[in-house]
């Protein structure tokens, strides 16, 4: 059984993010964990589209079309990753806004002290 080591490391990074979300009690730490998770995901998508010794999917003047098509990496995964990076940035911007409001209302970043809503 061959273990694809690069994918494995990427999944470990993803799990570190999940671990942070599950166990951490600090609002900022949770935001950081979500960021780590998203970063790992982006990297994973990018890796799926990689081709060994591939070149960047940008045609240079004078490049031969067949040779380019035979050696370029997947442009679609890169487009996907660009989209998901922007979405991640937007999520974080909104989350930080919410976190600041949370701090203003409760005076703390510790979610074990933020318990207005009954269970």
């Amino acid at each position: 059984m061959n273990v694809p080591i690069i994918y494995t490391l990427c999944m470990i990074l993803f799990s570190v993010g999940i671990y942070g979300i599950v166990t951490k009690k600090n609002v900022v730490k949770i935001i950081l964990s979500i960021l780590i998770m998203e970063n790992a995901l982006n990297l994973f998508i990018l890796m799926i589209g990689y081709r060994k010794d591939g070149i960047a999917p940008i045609v240079q003047p004078g490049m031969d079309a067949a040779g380019f098509a035979a050696s370029s990496v997947d442009p679609l995964t890169q487009a996907m990753v660009l989209t998901s990076i922007v979405i991640g940035l937007s999520m974080i911007a909104l989350m930080v806004a919410i976190a600041i409001r949370l701090y203003e209302r409760f005076g703390t970043f510790d979610i074990s002290e933020i318990k207005d809503l009954k269970e």
Partner: peptide, 21 residues
């Protein structure tokens, strides 16, 4: 933007972003 609403939305957002991930 009162206490309850912000707390609820933070909870919602964290769980939901795990779902989208």
């Amino acid at each position: 933007t009162m206490r309850e609403e912000i707390e609820a939305t933070f909870k919602y957002m964290v769980l939901s972003s795990v779902a989208t991930a």
